[in-house]
């Protein structure tokens, strides 16, 4: 993979932060990035735009015969994720129970190691997605544990 190092580096903004494209002429979002808008062609005005980090599972599969570099992770879940702006992308689904991985399950982006160039080479990081466990519980404030003291303030 050493010869692909420039490619890994070039994709960092996309893979770390979901930086995609937006056409200011027709309003469509694209991921991965595109140099021209396929709808508007020469009339299009492409700018960079961060994609939403939440979405839902559009379709999914379980990979048993993994490609080189992913053997240790097999079997793993792979899904087409539909982001909140309608953009589709392919991603591994991690940190989720198999039964929770269903079409329309809400997912959010997480940051993970994607691949590494052997033990000595560079590490490629990027996005994967996980099923949002319990949307309600995820915004619950903490409950104190144990008895709280009532010491007087100075």
């Amino acid at each position: 993979m050493a010869q692909l190092l420039p490619s890994v580096w070039r994709h960092i903004p996309e893979r770390y932060s979901l930086l995609g494209s937006h056409c200011e002429n027709c309003g469509k979002d694209y991921f991965p990035q595109r140099p021209i808008c396929p709808t508007c062609r020469r009339k299009g005005k492409i700018v960079q735009k961060l994609m939403p980090r939440e979405g839902k599972i559009f379709s999914h599969t379980l990979v048993h015969a993994a490609p080189a570099g992913f053997e240790l992770e097999a079997p793993y879940h792979l899904a087409i994720v539909e982001l909140k702006n309608g953009v589709h992308l392919l991603s591994q689904i991690v940190d989720s129970d198999s039964e929770a991985i269903q079409i329309n399950s809400p997912v959010k982006m997480v940051f993970r190691k994607i691949s590494e160039d052997g033990k000595q080479g560079a590490i490629a990081y990027g996005y994967k997605f996980k099923v949002v466990r319990n949307a309600a519980a995820a915004s619950k404030p903490g409950k104190p544990v144990g008895k709280q003291s009532t010491s007087s303030k100075k």
């Binding site: 770390y16 240790l72 992770e73 991690v94 940190d95 997480v110 940051f111 993970r112 190691k113 994607i114 590490i123 990081y125 994967k128």
Partner: peptide, 13 residues
């Protein structure tokens, strides 16, 4: 930590 987690991914999260 899983195979695809290290101190960098945890730090980012």
């Amino acid at each position: 930590p899983a195979l695809d987690e290290d101190s960098a991914t945890l730090a980012v999260e």
